[in-house]
Design a protein around this nucleic acid. Sequence first.
DNA 1: CGCCCAGTTGATTGAGATCAAGAGGGGTGG
DNA 2: CCACCCCTCTTGATCTCAATCAACTGGGCG
Lengths: 262, 262
Amino acid sequence: MALELRDRDTGVYDAYKAKPYPPHNPEAKARPIPLSPCNCCAAHKKAICASLDGTELHRFRKLSQVRLVKAGQSIYRELDPANYLYTVVSGEARLSSLLNDGRRQVTDFRACGDKLGEHIQGYYSANAEAITDMIVCQIPLPELQARMSEMPGLRVSLMEKMETEINQMRSHLMLLGRKTPIEKVATFLVERAKKFESATAENTDIGLSMSRRDIADYLGLTIETVSRTLTALKTKGVVSIPSPDQISVLDMMELKYLAGIE
Amino acid sequence: MALELRDRDTGVYDAYKAKPYPPHNPEAKARPIPLSPCNCCAAHKKAICASLDGTELHRFRKLSQVRLVKAGQSIYRELDPANYLYTVVSGEARLSSLLNDGRRQVTDFRACGDKLGEHIQGYYSANAEAITDMIVCQIPLPELQARMSEMPGLRVSLMEKMETEINQMRSHLMLLGRKTPIEKVATFLVERAKKFESATAENTDIGLSMSRRDIADYLGLTIETVSRTLTALKTKGVVSIPSPDQISVLDMMELKYLAGIE
DNA sequence: CGCCCAGTTGATTGAGATCAAGAGGGGTGG
DNA sequence: CCACCCCTCTTGATCTCAATCAACTGGGCG
């Protein structure tokens, strides 16, 4: 019968065992940075602290710490005690979960203004790793709780972030469950172009800070399929690929069509 | 080349076109029910209103309406203006999204005490349909907003619901992106057993209110694969299937193992 | 200079989708 | 009450596309 209850120890996913993801390195994970005011922070306007002003912001700033995380380092791991809520100031992070045998699902990429630190019952519910050098701003969770009681706006803006997150996850579920590889890759490129379009004036160049493996694990594909699909898009004249981490969209309409615009 | 940019109009998903999902029926969608106190509501302890007491609860009750929705009817549709937040009192609902060509992703099933009504910028972000006869409690969103400002506990418990939701969605992403059909079905059964175990004393009977198509669209599979996988589990002696909507778990340890306990 | 690793490309395989047919069960109407 | 239909679920046969296996390329770095 085609559909057997295959033993999961038979090495189906040997590729993952052969090349494990880099180990956790808690000591080296973060470097403190001197205090500087929030209102000149690159992430301030997009982050939860945007809802604060004047003295509130100042008090909030004193509770938080800015840290540098180098590319490849872990910010926190699944099942670590959750001590902080993080805001990405610069750089990009990858959120992921693992199965016992090493299969990985990347659940999101987080950039400037995004938060990090989803947790459940006091423990982080995913792995967060820097995929570029990063600056993050961390605030201890107990302090945040206290601040939220005093400043309802803080809780409101955190809730809004969560609503956005839920809606993004919903389309990600659709992507993983029902889209074809071409639709997946096209959707990924369109979303990425959208996320960063405000930054770069009018060009549709997309920077990929993450590896093909990261993209594959985000889209529920293999690296080979991601690579082949990008080549197919290039062949069709929809994109050009100056370098592996640089995609230039030549035909955004077509790309959106291929993405299956919802 | 195997990986072509296939035209999405070529009828790949004809099965969906041939049997469209039932149309929306806004008039018949809900029937008001006489007022009764919240503290005898089946969902009260699990729902967001659990954080209220005494006069607060009474005021809250007067703002909300209880309605009966028959199996198969729509509660709201994606892109409808979002007017209410719902709490499921009894029965079960299905949340889903559609692609243009009819492919469907079921994002969640909601039962007693769960909320309904995720929205973005004033519009519902998914379809909610009753899969059994249901009783739901609806509160107008503007009223809820106002109440939340006065009663912070309400906002806190709504946030907690959202956190739970995000964590469930994360494991759903892992399931859709990286799990095999057996793992998907086993996970679904384990989760379902967990969700309803408190209700039924000690037996591990699982009631399936939803069709095979619903399960397939939830797990990112076809109905055939769901059916075959259930049969495989039965053949292996892990479950018995007294009737299509009734699963009895004979070996919960094995089922959890097959689910790839995260 | 040559190693190493990420990415690409090619060949083959196999799991799950698709296509097709049969079984069971509930509801309706004669 | 039974016969028929309809619809869902199951089971079987076949096919296809993405995974797997494998080889090659090129750029960065010691």
